[in-house]
Amino acid sequence: MTLTIRKSVFLPADQTTVWDHLTRADLLGKWFHPASSDLVEGQPYTLLSQKDGDRMCWGTVEKLSPKDHMRWSFTVGPLNGTMTTVDWHLTTAPGGTQLSLEHSGLPEDAEGYGLVLALDKGWHGFLGNLHEIETMALS
């Protein structure tokens, strides 16, 4: 069994709006990290630090099924080049969209556990940011 982080959030926005926030460079920076370009299937991506513009995380967009599913290979500096996988699933929910994230292929050793905790905390915060943006758009 591989170590996997799973998160889910209900957003008061339609799937198209949520999808745009996951794939458009101008919107990614509002809740996650600024992107160097829009996310395109088969293309590498780089997300930058909000603080200093340095490369924060990167990989390749492996799959895009617009408004339903996206898969990235994903790494950050502390993973020392090891690629993990992030899957995003969007489903229609009453009044909006359920967004689910699954981050798999994470380190399973004791040394990697601190990184897993940091990633778990990060995903929790970023999905909270997205929820706040979508909720504020309604008011």
Results as ranks from 00 to 15, higher is better:
12 P>R: 10
8 S>P: 00
61 V>W: 05
93 A>H: 15
92 T>H: 14
89 H>S: 13
59 G>R: 02
47 L>F: 13
15 Q>Y: 04
57 C>W: 01
79 L>F: 12
72 W>K: 01
113 Y>E: 15
76 V>P: 00
46 T>P: 00
99 L>A: 06
87 D>S: 11
136 M>D: 12
7 K>D: 07
121 K>M: 11
8 S>I: 06
40 V>F: 04
125 G>N: 11
110 A>E: 14
47 L>I: 03
119 L>K: 04
79 L>V: 08
88 W>N: 02
126 F>P: 00
102 E>T: 09
116 V>L: 06
106 L>N: 04
44 P>W: 04
90 L>E: 01
10 F>T: 12
46 T>Y: 08
87 D>Y: 03
104 S>R: 10
47 L>C: 13
98 Q>D: 09
17 T>D: 05
56 M>N: 14
133 I>P: 00
103 H>T: 02
25 A>M: 09
32 F>R: 00
138 L>Q: 15
19 W>L: 03
41 E>V: 07
124 H>C: 10
137 A>Q: 11
36 S>R: 15
126 F>E: 12
39 L>S: 02
127 L>Y: 03
104 S>A: 15
94 P>W: 05
112 G>W: 00
136 M>H: 13
97 T>A: 04
100 S>E: 13
75 T>V: 07
84 T>A: 06
127 L>N: 02
52 D>N: 15
34 P>N: 08
112 G>M: 02
25 A>E: 06
15 Q>R: 15
57 C>V: 15
113 Y>D: 15
42 G>I: 07
92 T>P: 03
103 H>G: 02
39 L>R: 08
139 S>N: 12
4 T>E: 11
50 Q>K: 14
69 H>F: 12
97 T>H: 01
58 W>G: 02
2 T>D: 12
83 M>V: 05
133 I>D: 02
52 D>F: 09
94 P>F: 06
10 F>C: 10
78 P>H: 08
119 L>V: 08
117 L>K: 14
47 L>K: 02
62 E>M: 11
33 H>W: 14
95 G>P: 03
15 Q>P: 11
30 K>P: 00
